[in-house]
Nucleic acid binder design. Sequence first.
DNA 1: ATTGTTTTCGACCGATTGGACGAGGACCCA
DNA 2: TGGGTCCTCGTCCAATCGGTCGAAAACAAT
Lengths: 163, 163
Amino acid sequence: MPKIIDRDKYKKDLAERAAGFFSKHGYAGVGMRGIAEHLGVSKSALYHYFPTKESLFLASTESIMSRVGEAPLDVATTESAQLLALVDSMRGDFGPEMALVFDYLRGKSPTEIAADETMQMSRSTYLKAVERIVGPERAVETLSVVIGRLMLDYLSGGELGRL
Amino acid sequence: MPKIIDRDKYKKDLAERAAGFFSKHGYAGVGMRGIAEHLGVSKSALYHYFPTKESLFLASTESIMSRVGEAPLDVATTESAQLLALVDSMRGDFGPEMALVFDYLRGKSPTEIAADETMQMSRSTYLKAVERIVGPERAVETLSVVIGRLMLDYLSGGELGRL
DNA sequence: ATTGTTTTCGACCGATTGGACGAGGACCCA
DNA sequence: TGGGTCCTCGTCCAATCGGTCGAAAACAAT
């Protein structure tokens, strides 16, 4: 009787495509009208799937944070080459994605950040990606270096950081 | 005849105090009314000093970025202790300040970021602060590590990163 | 006190915001 | 073809946005 297209899949697809728009303009910088237009649907269609703008934003950030550090891993090369490859694979979207993260974290206290489930998942995904290369003991330290390089690269427009 | 209070100083003061508000809510997340209320002046008073919201935002970001890495330097301690002290001195405001930076950089291309004068000044200030500790050759590399630690610390709410 | 200037104020404008809503189209099964 | 759902659409609303403006307050010098 009903229309049985995959509603959840469609919803996820909308959230994921909206994420790029959010990261480009910021949460408060976009309106539901602009998002809908960018997605090629109507504003009401968006509200049909997401009750509020915030819920759409949360779904978007989650979808972005969950698919990170999924770079293929070439075990035949050296450790530093693998790290370099990891950094390179993340370089392209790092700036916009971090902008989204900072938007998501805006106003949250350190305690809230530590307890936030989306952030916990994102952290463990990042950590595991590094762990596969340098092992568990040096994971945190190495992740710090990797993020530092990505940040410096972004903040300098590519002029610094590519060591 | 006129009122000869220090207009420039007052203007700078407004911009600096507005910076905290911007970093807390994001550029698009605040209105001139909200800023004015937070500063204890009227909206028109704000427009008397800044022609547009954007000009106020730019003045705010510049004032924030220019006073960074001004930590006192204790030459008697070890290098790593000095680095740790530098990191500690920046930890408190790092998150909000980076949120402001990401807001400022939003939508800019790598080329534009590299050429941006405010960012150039900010980078050189950061670099000099590290340079005074580890010397010029290792400055970029060390800065990358410092920023990585601060980022990890912020993103984990203080649970990671304090190595 | 009076003049001339700077700073502040509240009222106002058109545009846009997040969200609500009912009508109609698209679709699946009988 | 005819129900019954699900989806989409345009319209409407109060609130808020950035920005303008003219009048009043605050002040320094005469």
